[in-house]
Amino acid sequence: MSYTGTAHKVGEHIDTDAIIPARFLVTTDTRKLGENCMAGLEEGWVKRVKPGDVMVAGRNFGCGSSREHAPIAILGAGMPVVIAHSFARIFYRNSFNMGLLLLEVGDEVDKIADGDTVEVDAAKGLITNRTTGATITCPPLPASMRELLDKGGLVPYVREKLA
């Protein structure tokens, strides 16, 4: 699991109403949700995103509601990974269930600025800022999360269990 893309940096306590406002929750379609990703932060925010880009955030990213539409909207916008100081817990579970990779790096997140080119090697637990040369080592993923990602998310996990 390795990704390289432009970092789009957002602030602290970015809530799920900012990631995908409730008025867009009348669908479960990935593309449609992606078109309105971060519309609660700024209308048209998503226009800056190219497929493969990386979201970078401060503390408590994804706080608020349990809407799984939030990680889906980020994936739908073309971002496969979010790097943050920390994540809200429901969002954390949802993201792995949906196949969105999250990396929790604490204060080290300050080593990435908006617009930097970032390379993520999830297997090695290494983030490299290609713009500045700075590196961040991430703590290993919890075993339960690795198991989920290995199986391809919660849907295949349960399918295997029911079979």
């Binding site: 349990s66 799984e68 949906m98 919660l154 029911l162």
Partner: peptide
């Protein structure tokens, strides 16, 4: 506790879920 839709779908199917 609140979970996402897919976590709840898993619980609806299996009658169980995991917690830390």
């Amino acid at each position: 506790t609140g979970l996402g839709s897919t976590d709840v779908a898993g619980a609806m199917a299996l009658g169980e879920t995991w917690f830390k």
